[in-house]
Amino acid sequence: MTSVSASKRPSPTLLISIAILSIFVLIGLVSLVALPQDPFDFITDEPFRPAAAGMWLGSDYLGRDVLSRLMDGTRITLFMALSATLLAHLIGDTLGLLAATRGGFVDTVLSRIVDVILALPKIIVGLVVVAALGSSIPVIIGIAAVVYSAGVFRIARALGNDLKEMEYIKLARSRGEGMGWILFGEMMPHVGKPLATDFAIRASFAILFMSSLSFVGLGVQPPMADWGGMARENLGGLSTNPLAAIGPAIAIALVSIALNLLVDSLDGDARH
């Protein structure tokens, strides 16, 4: 069955989403090596200067190059989103499958903690934690990872609950297999695909969440900026250089759409 789906032609949705995502990853990588301008340098005295040659997206509220800042922000945004989602999945998958297989006390305690996390408004949690610890990239990644691991936990636990009723899991346990083998040897091959699908959609949530944090001024601190931060700081110039605020907004939208398309096509494959 695996060989059939591998030899199948990929769907256009999949190709489009992969193309968009690759372009952004490429921009992120390029920004490490070279940028059109220094993203932190005031290259003109005029804030919100409209686009012109050498300054393809104009200048921002301090007269910095929007294009360079956008490219620099791509790297920061993608890095933060991916590491937060990865962490969320590491925590959520392991604990979710563990809760499903162990059941009883472990399951109850973990599930109730998750209920609490899910009940709290994400942005408020972010606000409180940032107020206590100060804003830095690791702190924001940490908040996003914990907040989103709750949702991942729910999904992994549900998948695990279906699986643990399978005789091969029971037989493995009666043989005396350790938790490691049962989680990663017996269960992982079954939950890999649905969890990968969740990973993609969860990453787009994380981007939106961290952009929202930045938008209310709690995210990445100046002079660095992720996309949400840029949209916020350039909001005042919508009439003179709209690209400064709309550019990063479009980037957020594009990546979110691409990730959702990716999920759709992965999900379609999973059904076969």
Binding site: E165, M166, E167, Y168, L171, P189, H190
Partner: peptide, 12 residues
């Protein structure tokens, strides 16, 4: 067990 379907991990 009875159900060989669920007794053998289909992914192995």
């Amino acid at each position: 067990v009875q159900m060989a379907d669920t007794a053998l991990n289909p992914k192995h």
